[in-house]
Design a protein around this nucleic acid. Structure first.
Lengths: 211, 211
DNA sequence: CGATCGATTGATTCCAATCAACGTGAGTGG
DNA sequence: CCACTCACGTTGATTGGAATCAATCGATCG
């Protein structure tokens, strides 16, 4: 199963469980849940975008993932969150209480949790492959393709800062910026402002991603 | 939940489900299941050690994880395996068929699968943090501490080759070797052969791991 | 005893981090 | 409206650490 398929299933399976779920709005930058906080809710992005991140003792930060409209996050299958979640943009979040695993009480929620768990695992595995053994150019190219694949409009939007991208990819902001400039100068992509871009030559960009 | 706790729960929860499960032996280097193969079994290491790996189109390889006695692997919550599994040493593996998710049919197996899923997710997230934002020294130090924590005897054993370690950490064999030599020359560890070591100064080694 | 594979060590290169400066755009207040 | 600020982003110069290229060592096996 590709990451994209996994996201799709997380969107569709157990959809009914979200009907009538509690909703909350978060302003840009606000924390949705904290690292080490109890994890007894699961969340779904109704509108906006979310990042999960893990802060190390020395101040370094690893971004877990980015979540867009319709995607489910916050399921970590352990008692406490290893990552915190913050609103990248102003956003609206639905949340439901997770039933105890495999209790069989609420089949709807159980199915949702399995789909979410599968999605999370697929994401983490893809992310591992990305972080593990690639050059900066490959990382950035793959990231751009991923973002573009999940954007519906004619232009892809980057709801996150360069620092977020860097922390996601295990690079510095300078390197991310250089790669973006390089791809643009090579005519692979075109930016309209810092957070809005089009992929001009998808095949060449995919070749840079080299998977 | 730490990675260690997660491993522990994977060992204990749903233990009964493994009683009477089918068993197979694999010689060193043999494949247990292949990348892209259907994933309808889950596995448990009875004796020996296993690695999971993902081969990229250009021949690069990412090691998913290493599994020791009592640990469960092969659960990926998708229809096909994204990683293959190989026997690191001669080993004995128990395997059971996974019930369809949250079917409620076999509570024992369901519970086991939840525990395994949680364990896998925790592993993947830890691995992400390791790969993402650390120096070669930090990676190797942390790896040694992880291995030692899971070894019962007085000396820790490395069932995998330097190449396996390198592919796990996203480094080259030369760099791994250099770090090991450095730690030994600094008196943090002592090797007895290439695959057997003791941690002499755990605190200093943990300081090198810097988490 | 070679032969062979895995591991170590050394020399050099190269890519990304770091250090530093500059640009840009949104918001603020005079 | 414009000057100012401030955060974010880009670009440039230099450094440093890991990869690469290359040679040697060591252990296991026929």
């Amino acid at each position: 199963m590709s990451a994209a398929e996994s996201f799709a299933s997380a969107r569709s399976i157990g959809h009914d469980a979200w009907i009538g779920a509690a909703r909350m709005s978060f302003a840009e930058g606000k924390e949705i849940y904290a690292q080490d906080e109890d994890a007894d809710l699961i969340y779904r992005v109704i509108r906006g975008a979310v990042r999960t991140s893990h802060l190390l003792a020395d101040g370094r930060r690893q971004i877990g993932d980015f979540y867009y409209e319709g995607e489910v996050f916050g399921l970590e299958l352990s008692s406490a969150h290893r990552f915190s979640a913050e609103a990248l943009t102003s956003c609206e979040i639905a949340m439901i209480r997770r039933s105890s695993p495999a209790s069989g009480r609420d089949v709807q929620v159980d199915r949702l949790m399995w789909a979410a768990a599968g999605s999370e695992l697929a994401r983490a595995q893809s992310h591992m492959l990305l972080l593990g053994r690639t050059t900066a150019a490959e990382k950035v190219a793959r990231f751009l393709l991923d973002v573009q694949a999940r954007c519906s409009g004619d232009a892809a939007i980057l709801p996150m800062s360069r620092q977020d991208m860097a922390d996601y990819l295990g690079l510095t902001i300078e390197t991310v910026s250089r790669m973006l400039s390089r791809f643009q100068s090579e005519g692979l992509i075109r930016f309209a402002g810092a957070r809005r871009f089009n992929v001009v030559r998808p095949t060449s960009l995919a070749a840079s991603a080299a998977f």
